[in-house]
């Protein structure tokens, strides 16, 4: 039987590949959900009632059901019901389906945070801009935007840290992220089985990445500390 030192390169190799998937899913989700969330936020705040009701209804469903179910449905539903497996069976397809599920899910959460941020900026700020002859877009970009960002950074930080850990849910459609990679050595893979120690390494990967994110987001928060 191999020693842990001999197994180490094999395990780290697998974990690295898995963590790359985790990171990819994380960044793609952020890249998609941050702007989509803004669109949804504007939708739910729309003065056109049917649009705002529909948006709120969708947000209610997405936030009220587990992401795991949403992912199962998004990945398997087209193939099972319409006999049209739009995602394909390979790694790319699973990654795409997971990304779409995550983006939609997180955009809904983000939209609620944005809504709070936008509505949290006092009405007087907009009026002060109006009486000073500013255009709507000048008011948004020069006055309200930064105040809104300041308001949403703390709750967004929480969601972003949660997202890092939530990426593990993509295992349900067999996306081979880092926990799948670590668990493979519990099940038995590449001559290593029944090994729990790769799981500690897996946890360590999350810890380091979340540590970096916490520092960066903390810095951003601090940077916005100069005003209230």
């Amino acid at each position: 039987m191999q020693t842990i030192m001999e197994q180490m390169p094999i395990v780290l190799n697998s974990l690295n590949a898995g963590f790359l998937q985790t990171l990819k899913l994380f960044f793609v989700t952020l890249l998609g959900a941050i702007p989509l969330g803004l669109i949804i936020a504007f939708g739910s705040m729309s003065r056109f009632k049917p649009l705002s009701l529909l948006t709120k209804f969708i947000v209610w469903i997405i936030r009220g059901t587990p992401l795991m179910i949403q992912m199962l449905i998004i990945y398997y539903f087209p193939g099972l019901v319409f006999n049209n497996p739009i995602w394909g069976g390979g790694e790319t397809g699973r990654f795409l389906a997971a990304s779409v599920s995550f983006i939609i899910n997180y955009a809904c959460y983000f939209s609620e945070i944005y809504r709070g941020g936008i509505q949290g900026v006092p009405k007087g700020q907009e009026e002060a801009g109006l009486v000073l002859g500013m255009t709507r877009s000048q008011i948004f970009f020069k006055v309200t935007l930064l105040q809104m960002i300041k308001r949403i950074v703390p709750p967004m930080s929480n969601e972003i840290i949660t997202l890092v850990k939530d990426t593990a849910l993509a295992r349900i459609i067999s996306l081979q992220e880092v926990i799948w990679a670590g668990q493979a050595f519990m099940k038995g893979s590449q001559g290593i089985s029944g090994a729990i120690w790769p799981m500690f390494f897996t946890a360590f990967y999350y810890l380091i990445f979340n540590g970096i994110l916490t520092v960066l987001l903390g810095r951003l928060e601090k940077k916005l500390d100069y005003f209230r």
Binding site: Y76, G79, P85, G89, R171
Partner: peptide
């Protein structure tokens, strides 16, 4: 093309044509 799947989902994967 080999795809690692969740064994519990094998029938689902097959019928959903994500595997053959």
């Amino acid at each position: 093309e080999f795809v690692e799947i969740d064994w519990d989902n094998k029938i689902l994967e097959l019928d959903g044509k994500s595997i053959d």
